[in-house]
Write a protein that binds this DNA or RNA. Structure first.
Length: 425
RNA sequence: GGAGGGGUGGCAGAGUGGUUGAAUGCGGCGGUCUUGAAAACCGUUGAGGUGUUACAGCCUCCGGGGGUUCGAAUCCCUCCCCCUCCGCCA
């Protein structure tokens, strides 16, 4: 959510930001409602002030045993008027809030303006030593390989649940678990995070807090009976841990890392790119979440990206880092880097991580604040998160890059202590 | 799922219709005293909205929402959460 005052004072900047993000511009409607709102506030508060003082007077009269029927009758009218005005005010505020919830975060000034993914900017690329880009191009893709080695079973996943719910079996299951543990441990030991194991279902307030609702409602699973949402990412429960809290400045930065299964409906995305792991409804992800002081958030964004990159370097998987252009930014993000890993069989880069700075956008929605130690003022903090990383696309790159000419898969060295075996097949 | 109890400021804990945004204690901050610290004493200490150049002023908030009343932390309805006991259960 953007600050209403900021919108009021900088409508031009907000409009431009919305345009650059290809979102719907409701600024004029918002400003109109805001004006109405303040008019109602003015009227209703004037009456309330009167009511308060007269009510006190009534109390005094009654105590003194005097008759107050006249002013009580008068106040009854004032009270009705207040009720009516409050209703109208509530109505206006509801409309205003509905609009505000749909206003996207504004792109940071360092974000290139652009309207398609072609306009994303490649920031850097990394290959393991002696990596030959062409070497593995003849190998089996992860679906065929997974089937042959009996480590992935997409068909039975479809049977027991539905398409897009992969099953890991045998050494595949162990490898997946090893990957998750390796990543968690690495972030804990080398990057100073605190581990969180969150619930996988959250309430609507949490989904609103991080910005999945209302805009992404169609992409979320929803358990209607209990009004709970399976998390699309651990970002949601972890960021919302401190919803409606005022933290001490000395608490910051807070660095959390946590694993969760992630559930996404991916509505309307069938067909293209939906093979195997390329698009699934349930996947595993280790997520880094940071709650930081505003002035540090852009440095922290660079940190979080490098933390994700460290994992790929340890795994020796080729990757590239993209700076997303304004039009490709998610609703809540002010700036975002995607990390894509190389898939030789697909002959393309696959998104395995997304690292974003939300500035105060989520903090304002979720009401997460901190108290400045020097001036004692309360202010919104900045939130960030980054995948560190999602295992599904990463697994594609691992299986394909570590494939031997015989169709076996060597387990990356850093994972071997976790798997207990060094080769699959 | 059933029965009962409870949700008040950073924490503990008063307050059951009329200057109560809220006693008191602890904690925090500032000060006096002290070579320094502790103790003691004094003062101060919630958030949001509106408004203002900035103050002031005004309004709202005692789990959330709604209601009764001239007036609600206090009464009513509803939802949520916590605790105790029973039942069920990985």
């Amino acid at each position: 959510m953007l600050d209403l005052k900021f919108i009021r004072e900088n409508p031009g900047i907000v409009k431009q930001g919305i345009k650059n993000k290809k979102e719907k511009d409701t600024v004029d409607d918002i400003l109109n409602l805001d004006k109405k709102r303040r008019e109602f506030i003015h009227k209703t508060e004037e009456l309330k002030s009167k009511r308060n003082s007269v009510s006190q007077e009534i109390g005094r009269l009654k105590k003194a045993g005097e008759n107050a029927d006249g002013i009580i009758a008068e106040m009854k009218q004032v009270s009705d008027e207040i009720k009516e005005l409050d209703n109208q005010l509530r109505n206006v505020e509801e409309k205003l809030n509905d609009l505000l919830k749909w206003v996207p975060n504004l792109p940071h000034k360092s974000v290139p303006v652009g309207f398609s993914e072609e306009e994303n900017v490649e920031v850097r690329k990394w290959y393991p030593e002696d990596y030959d880009v062409n070497e593995n191009s003849e190998y089996l893709d992860h679906v065929e390989l997974g089937k042959k080695l009996k480590i992935l079973d997409f068909e039975r996943g479809a049977k027991i649940t539905g398409s897009g719910f992969p099953v890991y079996t045998g050494k595949g299951a162990t490898l997946e678990r090893a990957l998750i543990n390796f990543m968690l441990n690495y972030h804990l030991r080398h990057h100073g995070y605190t581990e969180v194991f969150p619930p996988f279902l959250v309430n609507a307030d949490s989904m609103l807090g991080t910005g999945q609702l209302p805009k992404m409602a169609e992409d979320m699973y929803h358990c209607e009976k209990d009004d709970l949402y399976p998390v699309p990412t651990a970002e949601v429960p972890i960021t919302n841990l401190h919803r409606n809290e005022i933290l001490a400045e000395s608490d910051l930065p807070i660095n959390y890392v946590g694993y969760s299964a992630c559930f996404r409906r991916e509505a309307g995305s069938y067909g293209k790119e939906s093979k195997g792991f390329l698009r699934v409804h349930q996947f595993n992800k280790v997520e880094m979440v940071k709650l930081v002081k505003p002035e540090t958030s852009y440095d922290e964004l660079e940190n979080i990206v490098s933390h994700a990159e460290d994992i790929l370097k340890e795994l020796k998987i080729p990757y590239r880092v993209l700076l997303l252009c304004s039009g490709d930014l998610s609703f809540a993000a002010a700036k975002c880097y995607d990390i894509e890993t190389w898939s030789p069989a697909e002959n393309k880069w696959l998104e395995a991580s997304s690292c974003s700075n939300f500035e105060s956008f989520q903090a304002r929605r979720a009401n997460i604040r901190f108290r400045n130690e020097t001036d004692k003022k309360v202010n919104y903090l900045h939130t960030l998160n980054g995948s560190g990383l999602a295992t599904s696309r990463l697994m594609v790159s691992i299986l394909e890059n570590y494939q031997t000419p015989e169709g076996k898969v060597i387990v990356p060295k850093v994972l071997q202590p976790y798997t207990g075996f060094s080769i699959i097949g």
